[in-house]
Amino acid sequence: MLASKQFVGLSINYFWYFGILGLVVPFLSVFLDARGFTSLEIGEILAVITAAKIVAPSLWAQLADKSGKQLIIVRVGALLTLICFSLIIWAYSYWPLMFSLAMFSLFMTSILPQLEVMTLNSIRKSAKIYGRIRLWGSIGFIIVAMLSGELIERYSAEAFSYIGIVILVGLCISTLLSKQPRIANKVTLDNVSIKTKVFNTNFLLFFFAGLMLQMSFGPYYVFFALYLQNLAYSGFLIGLFIAIGVVAEIGIFVFAALFFKSFSLKTLICMSILLTSLRWFVVGHFADSDMALAFSQLMHALSFGLYHSASIAFIQRHFNTNQQSRGQAIYIGGVYGVGGAVGAYVAGILWQDGIGAVITFDFAAITALIGGILALFLRNKPIIERAIN
């Protein structure tokens, strides 16, 4: 049984970590647009800060796997993230702002893989407890997204900077109050090289399917809030629609164990990616309808929530305990880093200040469809109890 203090500490860390994402993911493009950047420049900036995820997680993960001290890395990462983000208050031109945000992303990406490993070590990889802890990240995302939309509309896009600083201060404080979990059995596993695991055919299929999925998220992460703003939705409604997606995501995390008992891992991954393709088609062609937009956001439960849980399960099953941080880092760096950067850059080219919105989301739909087809070739193995169940 996870001690209540440890449960609360981990939950608060997720709350603040995903809280900053609840600000940055929907509203960074709004902030950059208000500072006069073009859609191409916004796409370039988002691509560069996303590309920071390619290298950084692996560097931090090697240190974490060797030392076993994930919490120290989380604390240092949180402090440096706060410092770098604060620089955007004074950075108005293209290169200084890109540098500040790239460094922010570089240190931000050091946090989540270690936080995931700490959590899974603490809960003995129980899907039920993981879902309860992880949902506090979703709650943080919702609260920040809704409040930020209102505050930015009421005061100006510059409120973005100050909201972010408050959240990151909260993250720094929460990491200082956390404790490094004890691992009952020190690593005494086989010495199979991580390269063998990485270049395994099944892992490569999983990796490239995820890569295509994250590419498809490029237009959503970069331009979704601006897209709705151009369709005359208010700041509050933009935050509300984003919150709908995260509420649906919470439902998946709460009931994740039921999905894992009822479906194979391959089925969950395929279903998540293929339905994401439908989601982007709906966003691109029917976003002027409140009902269609709400429906597409409810699908976030599958395209993010269910896929995230399934991917964590896959990685936990595929890599040994002494390879977990590196496995997470390779996944985040490659899939989220490369996939996210390419998706953001292509979205910036296709968007054309809103004229190419439909084409951009069609690109997302086709990309996710390709990812779903790749996932169909995964080997269908039963879910091993120690993975996340």
Results as ranks from 00 to 15, higher is better:
I73Y: 12
M215E: 10
G9F: 03
F253D: 09
F236C: 00
Y331I: 05
I312S: 12
R386C: 08
E116H: 05
I42H: 02
S234K: 10
S303G: 15
Y331N: 15
I12F: 04
V358N: 14
I123D: 05
F223A: 12
L228P: 00
N322H: 14
N13W: 00
I129E: 14
L275P: 03
I167D: 15
Q323W: 01
N121V: 07
P26Q: 00
L228Q: 10
L226G: 10
I123C: 04
S277C: 13
I370H: 06
R317I: 07
K53Q: 10
Y227R: 12
S138D: 03
G372F: 11
L376T: 14
L302T: 14
F15M: 05
F304N: 13
G371P: 02
R317L: 08
P219Y: 05
R379P: 01
I315D: 08
A294F: 09
S289D: 07
T276G: 14
M215Y: 08
Y17T: 11
G343F: 08
L135Y: 08
I142F: 04
I163E: 05
L274F: 13
L28F: 07
V30I: 14
M291A: 15
F27I: 04
I167Y: 09
G348W: 09
I123E: 01
S174Y: 06
L374M: 15
V24T: 09
L231K: 10
A51I: 01
S148K: 09
F37M: 11
A248V: 12
L112V: 13
P57D: 04
Y162P: 03
S289M: 07
G22C: 03
I49M: 13
A365E: 12
P96L: 04
I123V: 12
W16S: 09
G333A: 13
I167L: 15
G19Y: 09
I373S: 05
R182D: 01
F319L: 04
Y130M: 13
L79H: 05
A287Q: 12
L112A: 05
D65H: 03
V338Y: 00
M212F: 15
N230F: 03
L46K: 06
C270M: 10
L151T: 15
M108V: 03
Y336N: 09
K179W: 00
P181R: 06
I315L: 15
Y220P: 12
L211P: 00
V30D: 04
L40N: 06
S100C: 06
I45L: 14
D290W: 11
Q70H: 11
L211N: 02
K381N: 14
F7N: 13
Y221D: 07
A357V: 06
A310S: 15
L274M: 14
S67Y: 02
F15W: 02
S100R: 02
